[in-house]
Computed example of a mutant assay.
Amino acid sequence: MRLQDKVAIITGGASGIGRGMAHAMAKEGAKIVIVDVNEEKGRATEQELNELSQGKFIKGDITDRAVIKHIVEETVSTFGRLDIMVNNAHVSKQMPFVDTTDDVLALSFNTGFYPTYYFMQECYPHLKATKGKVINFASGAGLNGMLNQASYAAAKEAIRGLTRVVANEWGPDGINVNLISPIAYTPGVENWKQHFPAEYEATVNKIPLRKMGDPEQDIGRVAVFLASSDSDYMTGQTLMVDGGSIMLR
């Protein structure tokens, strides 16, 4: 129970990697607030978490800073503290760079970069009080310059840059700020596999460990590590939880 009585906010927590992290942390004793726009899946995940520890679903549009402020305040009001902030949610569209419009770029930054930026600012006094943890998300799309991912890659690399700055600034406060860059078998990937099985197999065969990660067992367990005292001497790092697809030097 490495996260006993710790309190975490996880954005995009109703499905996929977010849900996997929520389950992994709840099994270690954490109280979880999941934030999502999908109420049906959010309520279902809340019920699952309450069978493991304590869970709370908040439906919210995190492109709105006032909503983010409310989410942080409601979390602290409900559970009395905040120890872990996980900025997982992100929406983007794939297309060639020359076709990328201002609206497409804005979608990626408004759902990924700016919520990460806003949540960290709103959470800061609470994380300072608990010497807490921030887990942000990077992507191989940004690290490798993946085709048709201009808006997503740009936002993810902006998050990486911001994370390193905040890690330096908040280190004296005892707050750890790190990143996960994952590959995982999510509902979206499952849908892609059903429609494009050959492309899916080709992608998996390029992964050194020859499999997609499990949202809970692979990504979630690394998130537990970063949220726990086991990672107290790490900050500003990008952890590649991708089966060896990208080996940083």
Rank of each mutant, 00 (worst) to 15 (best):
Ser181Val: 01
Asn136His: 12
Ser228Asn: 10
Gln94Asp: 06
Gly243Trp: 15
Ala184Ile: 11
Asp103Ser: 13
Gly174Lys: 10
Thr163Asn: 11
Leu226Thr: 13
Ala150Cys: 14
Thr130Asp: 03
Asp5Trp: 03
Ile10His: 10
Arg19Pro: 01
Asp99Arg: 08
Val76Phe: 04
Gln47Gly: 09
Ser108Gln: 05
Val76Ala: 06
Asp218Tyr: 10
Thr130Cys: 00
Ile159Val: 15
Asn110Leu: 13
His126Phe: 09
Ser139Phe: 05
Asp99Gly: 02
Tyr152Leu: 07
Ile84Cys: 00
Ala8Val: 07
Gly13Tyr: 07
Ala153Asp: 00
Asp173Met: 04
Leu127Asn: 09
Tyr233His: 04
Ile10Ala: 12
Asp64Lys: 13
Leu127Met: 01
Gly42Thr: 03
Thr45Ala: 12
Thr45Gln: 13
Leu107Gln: 11
Arg2Phe: 09
Val241Leu: 03
Gln47Trp: 01
Ala89His: 06
Ala14Leu: 02
Gly243Thr: 14
Arg43Met: 04
Lys41Val: 01
Lys56Gln: 12
Ala89Asp: 07
Gly112Glu: 09
Cys123Val: 11
Asn191Trp: 01
Val67Pro: 09
Thr238Leu: 01
Met95Arg: 00
Gly213Gln: 09
Ala129Asp: 11
Asn87Val: 13
Phe119Val: 12
Val204Asn: 03
Leu209Phe: 15
Glu190Met: 04
Thr203Ile: 02
Asp214Val: 03
Gln47Asn: 12
Lys31Asp: 03
Lys156Ile: 14
Ala14Tyr: 04
Leu107Gly: 08
Gln149Met: 11
Leu3Met: 12
Asn50Glu: 12
Pro115Gly: 08
Ile159Tyr: 15
Gln217Asn: 15
Gly142Leu: 13
Ile84Lys: 09
Ser139Tyr: 02
Lys131Cys: 01
Pro197Cys: 09
Arg65Phe: 08
Thr130Leu: 03
Tyr118Phe: 13
Gln54Val: 07
Ala223Cys: 06
Gly13Asp: 04
Arg164Asp: 02
Ile219Phe: 15
Cys123Arg: 14
Gly140Ile: 14
Gly244Leu: 12
Phe79Val: 00
Asn110Phe: 10
Asn191Ala: 15
Phe79Gly: 01
Lys156Met: 08
Asp99Ile: 02
Val33Arg: 03
Gln237Arg: 07
Val98Gly: 01
Asp99His: 05
His70Asn: 14
Ile183Arg: 11
Glu39Leu: 00
Ser53Phe: 14
Thr100Gly: 13
Ala44Tyr: 06
Lys31Gln: 06
Ala8Gly: 12
